[in-house]
Design a binder for these strands. Structure first.
Length: 276
DNA sequence: ATGCCTAATGCAATTAGA
């Protein structure tokens, strides 16, 4: 089963690119972020025509998250994180699909730092960590996928020294990311490619993609039972070079079938350890 | 410190992104 996350940066402005990528890449489940569309403007028909069911939480102008599936029903379990009834941003949607619980998220950017936006980012992160801990404690196959707006380590930034004061690379944001990871989540891309320079975002400015001046901020985190099934993890970098592309590229993982033969577990890759 | 670019809103210029 192939599961992807893609910050589309406007689902209607991006629709031709999204549909082309879905047809090319054939992901089974997709988490989308930054729909930038109100609930009623989600292009459900175009997506359904490619064989995908969808749930989404829209919002006028900003944010917005969705989960698509072509491998069976989407059993929605929640939208919005617990812990702040006044939070009006559409940044979290969660569903069980094909035996996996998937939390699709768009973590706040947090710039400028310091300021109320950075405070909101850290508070939102705390709420995510609290909820993620409960999900992990179930022992079930669980995944958190989306735009975390955090580069975990120096390896994930083209010029780390220039980003130290930025909300995406600030010590507080990275510490929160590792607090989350230390619950027991496995960063799929980094686990399969421990030393590789991998980016998922390139600014529209300054020919950033052409210069490969990128950031790794879109992540797929797996609970231990899911990590055992991890067989591949990649970024569809070429999509970032398409006409009218998002500033993010799609990121995906391939999971082995969950049904194991009795007494014959599949071979296991390294799934433990943190990154720094 | 700011522009560089892009999307949404809504029809100009502002907000937000990262």
């Amino acid at each position: 089963m192939k599961i992807a996350t893609y910050n589309v940066n406007g689902i209607n402005g991006r629709l031709p690119v999204l549909l082309r990528w879905l047809a090319d890449a054939q992901p089974d489940v997709v988490c989308l972020q930054e729909l930038k569309a109100p609930q009623e403007k989600f292009p459900e028909k175009a997506i359904r025509n490619l064989g995908y069911d969808a749930i989404w939480q829209g919002q006028k102008s900003w944010n917005g998250v969705a989960i698509l599936s072509r491998v069976g029903q989407i059993h929605e379990t929640r939208r919005g994180l617990p812990g702040d009834p006044d939070d009006s941003h559409s940044r979290y949607i969660e569903a069980a699909v094909n035996g996996i619980l998937i939390g699709g998220l768009y973590l706040p950017n947090g710039n400028p730092k310091p300021g109320p936006k950075f405070d909101y980012k850290l508070r939102w992160f705390d709420r995510l960590i609290a909820h993620a801990g409960e999900l992990l404690a179930t022992g079930q196959p669980v995944m958190l996928a989306g735009d975390f707006n955090v580069m975990p380590t120096d390896l994930d930034v083209y010029k780390p020294e220039r980003w130290l004061d930025d909300a995406l690379f600030a010590p507080e944001a990275r510490a929160a990311y590792f607090r989350l990871l230390d619950q027991g989540w496995i960063d799929a891309l980094r686990t399969l490619h421990p030393d590789e320079v991998i980016y998922t975002f390139w600014d529209y400015f300054r020919n950033a993609f052409g210069r490969n001046a990128g950031l790794r901020i879109d992540h797929l985190l797996l609970s231990p039972p899911l990590a055992e099934r991890l067989v591949d993890a990649q970024v569809d970098v070429a999509v970032r070079g398409w006409e009218k592309s998002s500033d993010h590229a799609p990121v995906w993982i391939e999971l082995a079938d969950g049904k194991k033969a009795p007494g014959r577990p599949k071979s296991r890759r390294r799934v433990t350890g943190t990154l720094d």
